[in-house]
Amino acid sequence: MTTATQSAEITTTVKRRSPLAETWDNLRRSWAGMLGLTLIVVHILIAATSPYWVPQDPYQMSADNRNELPSAEHIFGTDKLGRDVFSRSMLGGRVTLVVTLIAIAIAILWGGLLGILLGLLNGRADELIMRLVDAMLSIPWLLLLLIIISVMGTEMWVQTLTFGFTYGILTIRVARAATLDFVTSEFVLSARARGERKRTIVMKELLPNVRDVLLVDGSMNWSWMLLGFTSLSFLGFGVAPPTPDWGFMIAKNREIMAIQPWSVFGPVIMLSTLIIGINLFSDAFAKALGLDRSQGAPV
């Protein structure tokens, strides 16, 4: 179809560039992607360094300064207990970021590999596990998270594993679907006809081709996971007080929203800038990798 352009490109791209540099080049050309990446980086920097520079002690309560509106001293005002909302907003993403980042790595790893393997086997095990996955997905996700966490407790590592596990279930489907595009392709048939082991086929033939899809899917899932974690905090199953956390702050300060709206706006602004940043980045990242949703299937 694109015969004319293809052959021209073949000869021009002989100049070798690593795929990573190529992706970065494409990403740099998208202002939305760069904005997203900047937001994410700023958030990570804030999370990492905020304890050292926030203007007020985020734990310091003050009976005299409760529900104060923004002032020079308290940029976002204070909450019900007189704590500085700005400082707490800055620190509020620390636990969230650590938990979700580790969890997303776990999800990609186990969900991705299992999904690829199921796509390759495509037999009874695949059938069985996929029905199990369907069954899991039919449970409302918040309910599923709540059940696991109320049984296992609210320690950070439990939450990390829980999120890694539940979002891995979503990743299985994505990885399996992406793998099915390649399983019948001739290079996989060729490896099978050579008598290669399943492990080699998964690691050498399939994973490099599915990797991009997994990365993009992971970054999209990250924003969902942030919302999930914040929702749990909002319901009181997240970070134990008094550690500042966006979800918990929104839940508690909601009561004084009419008097001191900034006590809610602070964490909301932080959370939404991060999620918008992740979404902008994910979209641009997908395009940079050539997985543009508007252009159909990844190849």
Partner: peptide
Amino acid sequence: ICKDIQLIFQNPDASLNPRQNVAEILDQP
């Protein structure tokens, strides 16, 4: 027996893994 019987496909675009360079492709067998 696998070694003695090899297969070449119709479409070289599909029969070579786009994510492997020639050295990796030849390394596999």
